[in-house]
Design a protein around this nucleic acid. Structure first.
Lengths: 213, 213
DNA sequence: TCAAACACTGCATAACTATGTCGACTTTAT
DNA sequence: ATAAAGTCGACATAGTTATGCAGTGTTTGA
């Protein structure tokens, strides 16, 4: 079912790498490389990005970085699927790229076949990643608690902690959960004790850090 | 390089499904199914989970759910890699499974070859997921902002927002960043304006929601 | 049945916060 | 060169918060 060509643009400053990709993709009958650039600035002056199905983008680029490039494309041409390619596999790069809106993340050591598979997978709604990157992504999502300082708040306390994060006063919280102002005070004291804090903002911060909110 | 057997346990209540998996895995020379159970309770009475390299676990189980099972194994036998299998591919199930500590997530429609590949990939540090699940995971990580209400805080404001989340008073913040109490007041006013809030806890909450902190 | 733990209510107060207003200096853009 | 925007210092004050102490009623377990 290769009825339509997959239109691809490439942004990569290393000319050998770029030409390597081009020749790999050009030999596939269902791919069509419609743009090839050495920097984001160069790419964004042209219109082929907006017509692309897939953009293959390097992270380390002179001038505007690949991460910034992803944000730009996301803003201006949502719908274009961006696959990042990098020699880096550290958490920060992966995290930044994904948060900026990339839907896939490959390492440059990825072989020709895997590259082609990745592009087809991205077109079919997948998110191509090397297995190691996938594991990293999973680890990034998992709450990184030691388990030692894990805290159990009661349902009532959780309810009130959520209200706290909305900035309500004792009185306002009281009326929204049908409890006296002093009742709210009582629970907030206990929340503070359990979380080892002594202010609303600290409690909210801990709540977020521990995925309670 | 199949020098060592990969030890696998299965937790799945549907007997046909379970026996299907067993027979698939048994035909592979590098796999060894060391335990097979219809529920978490049954599995945890035995010792084979702790000796497993991989646990293949259903999400929908009678009694203790697969999600709870993952948490239990994580607590008691960290190091055991758990792959969830489910007919569900909705965000909540995927998210819960991953947060509980699963390192892979397959749909039950996954074929025999993919199942075997997934297990080998998990052993090599990967995170097996169907392409659709991978996309879901990526989407879960991406901040879901409309872009309209996206806010830019200055470096100074960000610095102070972080201090706010630690519960410091105006005075304390002032001395830690070498600014007068009133200077801190000035910035906090502006943070409130930009974030459309009027309390510290609200500001901190928004800061977390928008990944500013 | 006694104690202990929990879930509140009530009250008091020092400390802190949110917010308005005025003025000064610096940087950036036009 | 003038305006606009951003960063700060000062002062005032109503309103809110953090926290201590003292009760009351209910549930749970020994």
């Amino acid at each position: 079912m290769e009825s339509t060509l997959i239109k691809i643009s490439i942004v990569e400053d290393n000319i050998y790498m770029r030409e390597g990709w081009e020749s790999i993709l050009d030999t596939e009958s269902d791919f069509c490389v419609i743009g090839s650039y050495g920097s984001c600035e160069e790419a964004f002056e042209d219109s082929s990005i907006s017509r692309s199905d897939i953009v293959l983008m390097d992270i380390e680029l002179p001038g505007m970085s690949g991460i910034e490039g992803v944000s730009y494309i996301q803003e201006n041409h949502p719908g274009v699927n961006i696959i990042m390619a990098s020699v880096f596999d550290d958490n920060q790069h992966v995290f930044d790229a994904i948060c900026a809106g990339a839907i896939g993340y490959l390492l440059k050591k990825t072989g020709p076949d895997e590259l082609c598979d990745a592009i087809r997978s991205a077109m079919e709604g997948g998110s191509p990643m090397t297995p190691e990157i996938a594991r990293k992504v999973i680890r990034l999502m998992q709450p990184k608690q030691t388990g030692a300082d894990k805290v159990k708040l009661s349902d009532r306390e959780l309810e009130i902690l959520k209200e706290l994060s909305t900035g309500k006063s004792y009185q306002a919280i009281g009326s929204s959960i049908f409890l006296s102002e002093d009742g709210v005070r009582y629970h907030i004291r206990n929340i503070y004790k359990k979380l080892h804090v002594n202010s609303r903002s600290q409690a909210v911060a801990k709540g977020f850090k521990q995925n309670l909110i």
